[in-house]
């Protein structure tokens, strides 16, 4: 029972990282109907920025996370302006958007790789202490990841639901062209949406780096987030969160009770099964009216 609870908490903490990424995907998808394939690069930038803020400049963790968010949001917005906007304005086919995004991601990840080297870096120990809760030991960092992820997701929820900016984003999600005609500045919506998704991926990058290691190809984990958002129903924000937690927990249980070798295999099998039997995901019905 203790082992079960322990694994559940581990699963939720990695699920929370997936959730940040999956929500970032869902946000961009719901507004622009395309998957942001450069997301892995944003995550890598976030993780490296935080790592070097702490190791080189000795900044405390919250400041490092804040700076990483800023840097990543900047990269995300420049990718939007440089690689997506010219295509979006021209209403280019989705295939071209995908290629452009892949290109941006390839360039950024490999620049990071060449500039900083491909080695695995251990994220500086923030706190190894763990909290005991009814016999279950929870690492401080895990707890922090879970809490911080949910605080940021709730903040996003409030931003989308309660503010004028959120109203504009939601209007664009329903129909970008009509929203533009109604006086919403589509370019600022794009900058906000990409900025927010950059911030989310920076947080995810920091927590993922802290849990495992910081290396240029850590962005591969976004595949999992994409699988999670397909499980949840692509384009649906609540679906993305539920799918991510589910995937995180399933993966952790597979590693704990079967073998960690099969962890990634299981997630791929789940993807195939979901595509076969629930092509719209578990929250599929809700993806129709978006957000």
């Amino acid at each position: 029972m203790i082992l079960f609870m322990q694994q559940l908490v581990n699963g939720l903490s990695i699920g929370a990282v997936y959730a940040l990424l999956a929500v970032g995907y869902a946000l961009v998808y719901s507004v622009y109907n395309f998957t942001n394939w450069a997301f892995d690069a944003f995550m890598v930038v976030g993780a490296f920025a935080a790592y070097y803020c702490i190791t080189l400049f000795g900044l405390p963790l919250p400041v490092a996370i804040g700076l990483a968010m800023l840097v990543t949001a900047g990269v995300a917005v420049s990718v939007e302006v440089g690689a997506y906007r010219p295509l979006r304005v021209r209403q280019a086919p989705r295939l071209f958007m995908m290629i452009s995004a892949m290109g941006a991601s390839m360039a950024i990840v490999n620049i990071v790789n060449l500039a900083f080297g491909g080695s695995f870096r251990k994220f500086p120990e923030i706190s190894s202490a763990s909290v005991e809760l009814g016999g279950v030991y929870i690492g401080r960092m895990d707890l922090f990841a879970i809490v911080f992820s949910f605080v940021s997701l709730s903040a996003l929820w409030l931003l989308l639901g309660k503010t004028r900016i959120g109203l504009g984003i939601r209007a664009s999600a329903i129909d970008t062209v009509t929203a533009g005609l109604m006086g919403i500045n589509n370019n600022s919506v794009a900058i906000i949406v990409f900025g927010v998704s950059g911030v989310l991926s920076a947080i995810a990058g920091v927590f993922f780096g802290a849990k495992y290691a910081v290396y240029p190809y850590l962005g591969l984990v976004t595949t999992k987030a994409m699988i999670a958002s397909i499980i949840g129903g692509i384009g649906s924000l609540p679906g993305a969160v539920v799918g991510s937690l589910l995937l995180g927990v399933i993966e952790t249980f597979v590693s704990a009770y079967i073998s960690s070798v099969y962890r990634d295999l299981i997630s791929f099998t789940i993807l195939v099964l979901v595509l076969l039997f629930f092509p719209n995901g578990i929250m599929g019905a809700k993806t129709v009216d978006k957000l």
Binding site: A83, G103, S105, M106, A107, I108, V109, N110, L114
Partner: peptide, 9 residues
Amino acid sequence: LVIYGLLFV
């Protein structure tokens, strides 16, 4: 790969 990526865009 950097060059490929930039050329893609």
